[in-house]
Design a protein around this nucleic acid. Structure first.
Lengths: 104, 104
DNA sequence: TTTATATGTCGAAATATTTGGTTATGAAAA
DNA sequence: TTTTCATAACCAAATATTTCGACATATAAA
């Protein structure tokens, strides 16, 4: 049996930063938020709440998870906080796993 | 404002079948199970339980989620059920999202 | 057939996540 | 300054997931 039995230390670098990305993308509400963005678009919280079926605080919670996972970036401009897709980060996380699979 | 406000119907085909893959990969226990497989290897439930810190039924639960997401494939041989990585399926799901991002 | 082994399923408890009201913070307008 | 508005943070309730022991099933061995 040659399986990798180092169960506690086994998460390789390539996967370390993608765990939160997968959790973030694995929720339908968060997927819908991501799909709200048109190409290159930046949206503030109010605009996202407007098209969402969730409360302001629930949307805020999901936006935080998406931002902490690096899936969204944000910037405060005046009173509003604008969010946009961090395409580079998403692409890198997914590519890391695809590359890992190539060695499998 | 040009954002996609079709909040209820917005999940495109490219994302439909990847939701469960992201949920499946977004859990650390399930990541560790996936990382147990050496290249090309097939493992039965007992072998996975052996290197896991979880009970047999918890492992069984996670294997079911991974199999239903298409991340793992399985086959019963005699008394044992063998699992292996469905590399094609994982790659296709991740590539679908990368392709979607290219249009963004 | 009886026994042993491998795995799946069920149900309830433990745990984690999600949700939305309320409160706090920070920035612009009055 | 005071007020208003946008958002974040906090908290408790609702909901979902995870967990494990006990039981069920299926196959193989004795």
């Amino acid at each position: 049996m040659v399986m990798n039995s180092d169960y506690t230390k086994a998460i390789p670098t390539a996967w370390k930063n993608v765990s939160s990305v997968f959790s973030a993308l694995g929720d339908e509400h968060r997927q819908r938020i991501l799909l709200t963005f048109e190409p290159g678009e930046r949206l503030n919280v109010g605009q996202i709440v407007e098209v969402s079926t969730l409360s302001r605080s629930a949307v805020s919670h999901h936006l935080r998870i998406l931002r902490e996972a690096g899936v969204l970036d944000s910037e405060k401009i005046g009173k509003e906080v604008y969010f946009w897709l961090n395409k580079k980060q998403i692409k890198e996380s997914l590519t890391a796993v695809i590359d890992y699979l190539k060695a499998q």
